[in-house]
Design a protein around this nucleic acid. Sequence first.
DNA 1: CTTTTTTTTTGTAATGATTACAACTTTGTA
DNA 2: TACAAAGTTGTAATCATTACAAAAAAAAAG
Lengths: 138, 138
Amino acid sequence: MERRNHTGSYLAQYGIRPSVQRIAVMEYLQAHRTHPSAEEIYQALAPSMPTLSRTTVYNTLELLVAHGAVAHITIDPRFSRYDGDISLHGHFLCEHCGTLYDVPVEALPQTLYPKDHQVSSVQLSYRGTCAHCTQKHN
Amino acid sequence: MERRNHTGSYLAQYGIRPSVQRIAVMEYLQAHRTHPSAEEIYQALAPSMPTLSRTTVYNTLELLVAHGAVAHITIDPRFSRYDGDISLHGHFLCEHCGTLYDVPVEALPQTLYPKDHQVSSVQLSYRGTCAHCTQKHN
DNA sequence: CTTTTTTTTTGTAATGATTACAACTTTGTA
DNA sequence: TACAAAGTTGTAATCATTACAAAAAAAAAG
């Protein structure tokens, strides 16, 4: 309940009314930094919330992203992934194992931003083979 | 034919055997810098290549991307987009009109690259509202 | 507190991009 | 010419996501 109140006010900060489902999704994203898909979140929460529906997970993620509480990661062409960490950082997708790693980013030079358009979010994404898969020489 | 030979040897440089279909897709991407989807490419080429199949467009794009002759852009969650310009630059997706703009990038500081992983491609992506849509105040 | 209204959730049925697959065609080569 | 390999095609899945309308829950009103 400690956690629940915490997450509840976090959502409120973003102008999101905190329902049980929204808190559960948000909490899952803050606790699991694996950049999960909607399906993974659904599968993880379903056991403890038997009435939860996939549609609610999709709706909730859309809402969280629209209000800036969660980042929408589009590097993986198979499905959207989501990140509860909205601080500035990049992502590396291993094309062999599918793992999505964080890449630290101090700051993104202003010169890299588009001049004419109004930016609401940034993504710095890399693709390739991760250290783990390189060793296994997959 | 001038153009065809040119594109043929461009593909050969990347170790891709130049078929009529592959040349057509590659040429389309070099002539149209709109970051089209597979479907858009298919629709554009189909009239002049009545036997062309969607599957071939998908297969061809996968091949071109695998060999590094074309960039695979994953900023648009609705579908994959492709870019015949493989020089370093970023992209801005307008969430109102769906237009994908190029964003010039001088160079990406080495400090922004992941330390441990073997990178094969980079994407710098922005989302928001484009100048055009801001004026129309959509 | 009830009643009414608004918001949220849910399940099912589409949609639509992408892939699997097997047959057919073209190209390269002996 | 004839065989083998590579490429193309059409159709049928697959699978992530969205549309939609009914049910449930929460908030507002009386």
